[in-house]
Write a protein that binds this DNA or RNA. Structure first.
Length: 295
RNA sequence: GGGGGUAUAGCCUAUCGGUUAGGCGCUUGUCUGUAAAACAAGUUUAGAAUGGUUCGACUCCAUUUGCCCCUA
């Protein structure tokens, strides 16, 4: 079986996952967009080396900070990983807070092959012209995409140029359903104020442990134009090189709370055609699964 | 003690003798190759206090209070 555990950042997902893995002969697969990176140790709240020894963890700490890694790579890696665990008769515990990554892993998302295309002409356009250009290519996607969202407009145009198939056509070929049958989906529920408090405490601990130094070291080693360094905790340090540590901490705390809030929105609306079960701790997951597996 | 400046929403910053202030925050939402990303919608009827000038004052004047700067 596959057990998905998601929820906002700092809601003890990783800890719960370990308990569940131990209980059900499972192994843990990461669904977090930044815990995949090596060397981003303090700011991403990765499991500890002790955790790794208790239960096998997959797709953590394996991508170089200067590598390009996208949802496409993740989907491949996650699917391969899940299949091999199923073959080994292991239960899969998919844990993480990156909603899109979870969707790509368990839904029938399909990505076409990416080919080099020339977007220079489009990149020069203003937002309105870009939106008009997409309208000519893919009316449906244009209607769904806000004029100001250049990134999405450009990507939708690129999708068409790459394979001569529009984004809306590509999506119509999908059923938008979960591809695994034996799956449980849990969201860790936590009171919002309590969560914000925990986030602030954790951020403080991270800065005390040397997050600022780690961020500066990574910039020096790899340059600042890497996706990995857009992570909260690193971005704030890099964008404000002259800011005092306590001000940087405040920024990190604020942005992490924002992030948690956005995750909650994603959870509320984006997981279609699955039963979402809200739980507070590992025990509630165990109770739920035991009840359902006994039939 | 003397002189000067300042007071605008939870915070920061404008403007103006008569009209919707803006940003941050907060709330809600969109989401298929940067997703800890990108983008959108909503939100508090603010003018330190008192008095005056005026048809009309957040804006001009006076006093008081708080804060900041200079000075013996």
């Amino acid at each position: 079986m596959i057990i998905v555990i998601t929820g906002p950042t700092c809601s003890s997902k990783s800890k719960i996952a370990i308990d569940i893995a131990k209980r059900y002969n499972g192994e843990i697969v990461n669904a977090d967009a930044f815990q995949i990176y090596k060397e981003l140790d303090i700011g991403t709240a990765k499991p500890s080396s002790y955790d790794y020894r208790i239960v096998p963890h997959h797709l953590y700490d394996f991508v170089l900070p200067n590598a390009k890694y996208s949802i496409f790579n993740y989907q491949n890696d996650a699917r391969i990983c899940i299949s091999s665990l199923i073959k080994k008769k292991k239960n899969v515990i998919l844990v993480g807070g990156s909603g899109l990554y979870i969707k790509a892993a368990i839904y029938d998302f399909k990505f076409n092959k990416k080919k080099p295309v020339d977007l220079k002409e489009f990149e020069k356009m203003d937002n309105q012209s870009l939106h008009d250009a997409l309208k000519k290519i893919d009316q449906e996607t244009a209607n769904k995409t806000h004029v100001n969202n250049r990134r999405r407009l450009l990507r939708a145009i690129a999708i068409f140029l790459e394979n001569n198939e529009t984004k809306s056509e590509l999506e119509k070929k999908q059923k938008h359903e979960v591809i695994y049958k034996d799956i449980y989906f849990f969201v860790v529920k936590i009171n919002r104020n309590e969560l914000y408090k925990k986030i602030k405490e954790r951020a403080k601990k991270m800065v005390d442990k040397g997050l600022v130094q780690e961020a500066r070291m990574l910039v020096k080693k790899y340059g600042k134009d890497n996706n990995s360094l857009k992570a909260i905790g690193y971005r704030e340090v890099i964008e404000n090189p002259n800011l005092a540590d306590d001000k940087v901490l405040e920024l990190i705390q604020k942005n992490t709370c924002h992030y948690a809030k956005k995750q909650l929105v994603f959870i509320r609306h984006q997981y279609k055609n699955v039963d979402i079960n809200f739980v507070r701790d590992a025990q509630e997951i165990i109770d739920f699964i035991d009840k359902h597996e006994s039939f």
